[in-house]
Design a protein around this nucleic acid. Structure first.
Length: 155
DNA sequence: GCCAACGTTGGC
DNA sequence: GCCAACGTTGGC
């Protein structure tokens, strides 16, 4: 099983929004970055676990856990001219933007803020989230980092 | 709201 | 293929 971290702006789509969806599941649409797409298209497997991260908000940080809930499939908004995610260059026979469904698992007992995570940079080792200038919205988390961060939750 | 970082676009 | 211009991300 692989582990991931996925960012979302809570004003746009929060972990509570995910929890309140039918079946607690939502397509992770709107990703328009190739690296992030490649993770969803090529590497994610149903059942993989995800840290749900709130970005661009008062206290950015990990707020909960979700799981990968579908095989990869095309993001339908790329073909909708009225959508802000419309991509006229995407070929319907070979869609450019691929996503997976994500399912709510639980909130963490407390928010693991970016500040706190940074304090543990040494223990976490090379971690995309704390790398300088990082803007990736989907990134891998290794086993040790996953366990370490979950350990922080209980402190 | 500011701005650093960085990805994308498009002219050449 | 280079690179300047531009747009977006996201912390602060």
């Amino acid at each position: 099983m692989n582990y991931w971290l996925m960012k979302s702006e809570p004003d746009a789509f929060s972990i509570d929004d995910l929890k309140n969806r039918p079946d607690r599941t939502e397509p992770w649409d709107g990703v328009r970055n190739y690296q992030a797409r490649n993770f969803m298209r090529d590497e994610m497997k149903v059942g993989d676990r995800i840290f749900f991260y709130h970005s661009n908000c008062k206290v950015p940080g990990i707020v909960g856990i979700a799981t990968v809930a579908s095989e990869p499939y095309p993001d339908r908004w790329q073909f909708d001219p009225d959508s802000k995610y419309y991509d006229p260059k995407s070929d319907p026979d070979n869609p450019r933007w691929i996503l997976v469904d994500v399912k709510y698992e639980r909130h963490l007992d407390r928010v693991l803020s970016l500040n706190e995570i940074k304090e543990h940079a040494e223990a976490l080792g090379d971690f995309a989230l704390t790398r300088r200038g990082n803007r990736l919205s989907i990134m891998p988390v290794d086993d040790a980092q996953w366990d370490y961060l979950l350990g922080l939750e209980k402190q």
